[in-house]
Write a protein that binds this DNA or RNA. Structure first.
Lengths: 344, 344
DNA sequence: TTTTTTAGTTTAAACGATTAAACTATTTTA
DNA sequence: TAAAATAGTTTAATCGTTTAAACTAAAAAA
């Protein structure tokens, strides 16, 4: 690898000290430096195609202009999209992003945090898996600038940018109730993660407020292993028997994906036999037979705000900002009012 | 931010020089160092929760154990999946990854390369947009370890890991021909990117080898702007008129997505009215009415090989490795043999 | 006993930047 | 004319590591 030009090289060519070169190229002490020397320095820097060594800079300034991003899985479209918006927003402020996937695994998360901190990232954007409360507290104690995104822990006072999950699910159930559906089921993830339990809470609250029946068997949490099969089994149970569910909510994009496939293979008619509400937006939904009602997360805002909140924390350490954004219900044919459902 | 412990801190506590601490913690000169001192140093390092400052380390060793990854768009499922495999493989070798999206824009690509190089990444994994040949040559000249992935330039001698796109598309067309389809169209991207033109070449070669008609109008390149509408328009044209196309190939995942949606909204029956072959695998395809035939890219191998080829280049500079992996045709109902097509 | 070898450790320079403080020469003020 | 202010530049320390070379004391060889 051909050696890159350093401040020293420029200094040598121009015949000045490296300090002066540094001052000129960083526009410091402008009023003190002679125009001509400054001009020559800039010219030589350009000629030699000088690019500052960020590593050296970082060592001195202890700022790397790098952010660490830990999500559950960068291959998950939700996180991939989020990552993209984070990347763009970071780039706007001349920051780069190192990303890593925790696989919802606390140990892996801890390892990633350590790795990122050793690389001296200026701050962390974290979509924390369940069970990392202590890690987050630890980061706070160390004073590491941090913002949680998508998920957060209500009992720990951190900055976060997340969806108002309660509202989102409440709105969806409310929508179903208003459309005339009475027996409403939900398939969710079997996890303690607050953003998921909030969705459950929203579901239950909206059922109650609309005087709809709540049944234990209509609320089905699914473990992460063998998710598609479990979802299929649940839908089978939901749609058969004497009192089948009339509408179902899928509490995450992965569940929605599995659910829609199951609905296809079970040949359940949507919405006539079963109304459907999905979580998250993916262009995938466009391939389903019936246009799908779904809860749209403001992914762009989530990403942008996560970055700006974090950069803010860098500027004003210790400041805590907590943001809950509302989801938007996109009503489509999969939750058509019962009254105008076409006969089979 | 509470100050982290440094080598100096450990040295002070133990009462030795930083050099010795460094030697111990890096297991250098093992035979020279007294067991007891080594033990004490390790103990104190643990007690003080010492984490080496990678920045300082990097400055000295001029290796950052960081790789730069530039793809077209990290939000595109293909690249998101690829990125995930790259992340995992890099992590296996204790490397981290900085990612960035070029949006198929040469200027942005150049900017990203510069940024990544300033951060002193040890090497670059690049899915280059069209028109960055000069940038790649420049990187080669500078001796920057580099591997192209997914795409490459046949006229530039670089390491790369890519699909055998000619073979992939050839196989698909061959499959259609063997299944009895005669009038075969393809919708592709309007670009000079070699991996895409190779798909076209495979398409044409297979048509010829199977004595099938080649028609200019059956091969439709689509520009990136307003892609879905253009794809829909093309499909409309393909399926109407006196001599409609019997089968269509979608030359990328984005085109496939748009194409499938259009097929739905045009109510074209698959495969009875139109057989379909898609490029890339996504679980999206599971929602389509007919199980889809598609060309599966070995994304995991692509990602893993990209990393290992790059790490190899780091070890043995100047070594060029070029890998073309075969795609796999997954034959399903959307290309059922004409002879057993159900009557409408 | 003197010299050589070996073991164990320290010294000090270096990586490439930043920046407070010092320095020199010139100009202004008193 | 001496003192003070200003302009323009350099010196040198520093960030946290690594590592060749130097050093010292004890052990082994002559």
């Amino acid at each position: 690898m051909q050696k890159k030009t350093s401040l020293k090289d420029i200094a040598q060519v121009v015949g000045v000290s490296t300090a002066l070169v540094s001052y000129v190229l960083n526009n410091k002490k402008e009023n003190r430096i002679s125009k001509e020397v400054a001009k020559r320095i800039r010219q030589v820097a350009k000629d030699l195609n000088y690019q500052p060594n960020q590593i050296a800079k970082s060592l001195k300034t202890s700022r790397t202009r790098t952010l660490g991003l830990i999500v559950a899985d960068i291959a998950n479209p939700f996180f991939a999209t989020l990552a993209r918006y984070i990347e763009d927003e970071a780039d706007k402020h001349n920051y780069t992003v190192i990303f890593a996937s925790s696989d919802e695994n606390p140990d892996k998360c801890q390892k990633l945090i350590t790795t990122l901190l050793n690389r001296q990232v200026d701050g962390l954007i974290l979509a924390p898996p369940a069970g990392v409360e202590s890690q987050v507290i630890d980061l706070q104690k160390k004073g590491i600038p941090l913002v949680l995104v998508d998920r957060y822990f209500p009992d720990i006072r951190t900055s976060y940018v997340a969806l108002n999950n309660f509202q989102a699910m409440y709105t969806a159930v409310d929508h179903l109730a208003k459309a005339g559906y009475r027996r409403v089921g939900m398939i969710t993830l079997d996890t303690d993660l607050y953003h998921i339990t909030e969705r459950t809470r929203g579901y239950l609250a909206a059922l109650q407020d609309n005087n709809l029946t709540t049944r234990r068997s209509w609320l089905k949490p699914i473990g992460p292993s063998n998710l598609p099969a479990e979802v299929a089994r649940t839908l089978q149970a939901f749609t058969t028997g004497p009192q089948p569910v009339e509408a179902v909510l899928f509490a995450s994009n992965l569940i929605a994906m599995a659910g829609l496939k199951a609905i296809k293979s079970l040949s359940v008619a949507v919405p006539n036999e079963l109304a459907v509400v999905c979580f998250d937006e993916t262009d995938t939904y466009g391939l389903f037979d019936t246009p799908l009602t779904y809860i749209r997360q403001p992914v762009q805002e989530l990403g942008q705000l996560a970055v700006s909140v974090l950069l803010n924390t860098l500027a004003v350490p210790g400041q805590i900002t907590q943001v809950n954004l509302d989801g938007q219900l996109i009503g489509q044919a999969s939750t058509q009012p019962v009254s105008i459902l076409l006969p089979d």
